[in-house]
Design a protein around this nucleic acid. Structure first.
Lengths: 231, 231
DNA sequence: AATATAAGGTGTATTTTTTACACTAAGCAA
DNA sequence: TTGCTTAGTGTAAAAAATACACCTTATATT
């Protein structure tokens, strides 16, 4: 790397908040650290970024190593670079979140590096995390909470076919408030971004609900106009 | 820096989009590069981050060196780390924007490092920039465009005392659309975050308008409730 | 077969918010 | 005094958001 002064080099890492939705609960994947510092603490999955890879690639790699999944919706949301956030020196951390479909997914392949175990933990029960990961988590959670109101990210967390009640539950968990069933359905359907399937829920011991799919084509068509200007 | 593997070190920098509003135009500060690569091109002000400083501090330093200003509203908005974005190797860049009061400000102290000159350029006339700075600019501009609709950032760009017409002009320039005067005033005043002053505009060759101030106290009081939940 | 259980699914009236729209008032300059 | 330029103001209509309760349907239980 000619011309770039080496004394400006910094250590930096990517950390990921991996969200999943299962049994009505929003969860994130945490690893239990096997090494100092913060041995025995829970932490967000993360790792160093190589000299030769793009940041985004590092994020994808971490997701793959934590879950075995590829081609997942990931988004960078903030970069943490305060002094003293890592006990061994200044470390820059670029934080991403990922939204994955937990339902149907069998097992999560746990990380071996630095990790004793990997667990899915309800966002309502997250303990104090290693380093400044509690802060990172709060910031990322806030990000998806804002985003869900104007971008179709909820569908990344649901199975491909879902009921309106499942969709509403997910909104309720992320927004942390109860929503009115009739108003929710009216509004969601008015966006005209769902495809109603000729299919119903199975294996429930009560009246089965209709299944829907997110329709990317309709979404693109109907929200193109969002970009143009009214008066 | 014991314990952290040196081969993960990366070069990284902070770049700033410094926005100013003057004579009805939204402008950013650009420097003309004096050195290769991209000698003679315009670029965002930026510099390497030292080992021993927090990212945010580097951003403040760059702002100070470019404008002589301190205690300015700055916000980090994205980190760029693709391969090939710098011809001499992989460079990570954390991007910030700053909102400053240009009106009343005399001169901008130009950067000497790497810079031939520093100029204020209307956001509508930005040429192709060095490196991937065009992309950084677009992303930052988009950020403030979104943000202005739900956060009181406009006031950072206006003089302390301003007229409603000036405020509306600023919204129009950032949102890139004409707004209705009556509706704009009605809505803005309904937020109850402005203090009407017993003072009028001076030095205009037509009827002088009332001056207003942004009232932080009112803002805090009235938008506390935003955080609580309705049904 | 009848009944109980549990969630699915639906409409309307009210309130609030957003939009569209045009003229008079004030101050300065010629 | 007249002309010019921007300041400042209200109302009606449309659209969006909210509040609210009952019947339907599928399964499980007796």
């Amino acid at each position: 790397m000619e011309n770039l002064p080496a004394h400006f080099d910094s250590v930096f890492t990517v950390d990921c908040i991996i969200f999943g939705f299962d049994e009505g609960e929003l969860k994130i994947l945490l690893i239990e650290r096997n090494e100092e510092p913060f041995k025995g603490w829970f932490a967000l999955p993360g790792y160093f970024v190589e000299h030769t890879e793009a940041i985004e690639n590092a994020a994808k790699r971490i997701l793959y190593e934590s879950t075995g999944l590829k081609d997942i919706h990931m988004e960078q949301f903030y970069t943490f670079g305060a002094l003293g956030r890592h006990p061994h020196g200044r470390v820059i951390t670029v934080a991403y979140y990922a939204l994955i479909r937990l339902t149907g997914q069998k097992e999560v392949k746990p990380i071996t590096n630095f990790a004793k175990q990997a667990v899915w933990m309800n966002v309502k029960d997250i303990p104090q995390l290693a380093f400044d990961h509690s802060r990172i988590f709060r910031k990322g959670f806030e990000k998806i909470r804002n985003k869900i109101s104007y971008q179709p990210i909820a569908f990344e967390l649901l199975p491909e076919k879902f009921t309106l009640t499942q969709l509403q539950n997910l909104y309720e968990v992320i927004l942390n408030k109860k929503l009115d069933k009739r108003n929710f359905r009216k509004k969601m359907l008015s966006y005209d971004i769902l495809k109603e399937l000729d299919e119903k829920q199975k294996g429930v011991s009560y009246r089965a609900a209709k299944l829907y799919k997110f329709d990317k084509r309709k979404y693109a068509k109907n929200f193109q106009k969002e970009l143009s200007f009214g008066k």
